[in-house]
């Protein structure tokens, strides 16, 4: 089994803010569930993963975070593209499977669409989706720089299963992936076979040691939002756009048509 943590993400974020003497503009609360608590009317800034709001209007004072952008493997993939270590990117292959409880199908599309635009550095211009009810979505994206991106998502994992994902960038010179060559599943930093069973540990952040990967990236992205309050309005605007892209995917499936995306990614 993969270990989980009982550490509180909000406490870890607070400690991080104290450590670097960051003074948020006002009271805040970090939520990592699918719904934020009913606390958005008392002037408290509510920080939530954006995907948790992808089927609802965004309440006032809510900041939709994109935690994956703070995850080290994605930061490294982006760096490989930005520094032109792999160049030019021509195709991407993304996959994301969940149990549907932690992250529903629409949320997986929200996440992967944002990763596509962010990693490639171009906006989505076309979507064609084949979706099976609420279980699986197989989507082909075209980006403004002509990159083609396949997005395979599903919520068919058994309840309680950790997310299973994979991201590969294929360029004319080089390939980059967050999975080792010839593997399909994530590797752990430590695997321990002991009298108490099999345990796996993956720790990627010494400063937030003890948090799980999802908590680390959530805390990191919330820290950046609190440190740079001017980005909040941009986060909210981009959230709206991502929601529209997800809706277009469902529309594509319904109409069985390629959907053109209007507007340019800011």
């Amino acid at each position: 089994m993969t270990t989980t943590t009982s550490l509180d993400t909000g406490d870890a974020l607070a400690a991080l803010l104290r450590k670097y003497a960051v003074q948020p503009a006002g009271p805040w609360r970090l939520c990592n569930g699918r719904r934020p608590p009913e606390c958005d009317t008392d002037g408290v800034l509510v920080l939530v993963p954006g995907w948790s709001q992808c089927d609802a209007d965004l309440p006032e004072q809510t900041v939709p975070l994109r935690p994956w952008r703070s995850e080290q493997r994605f930061i490294e993939l982006k760096r490989l593209v930005d520094e032109q270590t792999i160049v030019p990117v021509l195709m991407c292959r993304f996959a994301c499977l969940t149990d549907g409880n932690a992250m529903p199908l629409a949320a997986t599309l929200y996440r992967e669409f944002d990763l596509a635009e962010w990693l490639v550095g171009a906006s989505i211009t076309g979507i064609y989706a084949a979706i099976d009810c609420c279980r699986a979505a197989n989507v082909i994206l075209r980006l403004s720089n002509d990159v083609v991106c396949s997005v395979e998502t599903g919520v068919t994992l058994p309840p309680g299963s950790p997310m299973h994902d994979r991201h590969e960038l294929i360029a004319r010179r080089g390939v980059a992936s967050d999975r080792a060559v010839d593997t399909q599943v994530a590797q752990s930093s430590i695997s321990a076979w002991t009298d108490s069973g099999t345990q796996q540990y993956t720790d990627t952040d010494a400063e937030l040691f003890g948090l799980g990967q999802d908590q680390v990236s959530l805390a990191r992205s919330a820290y950046e939002a609190l440190r740079n309050p001017e980005c909040v309005s941009k986060l909210r605007a981009e959230h709206v756009r991502l929601r529209q892209l997800v809706e277009l995917a469902y529309e594509s499936d319904r109409l069985r048509q390629r959907m053109a995306v209007e507007g340019v990614y800011a």
Binding site: M91, A137, V139, I140, V148, I170
Partner: peptide, 17 residues
């Protein structure tokens, strides 16, 4: 380089690289 997706008659979706 290409990708293909679609549906089967029974509604099963697929994506193929």
């Amino acid at each position: 380089l290409l990708v293909v997706n679609g549906k089967m008659a029974d509604g099963c979706t697929f994506l193929f690289d």
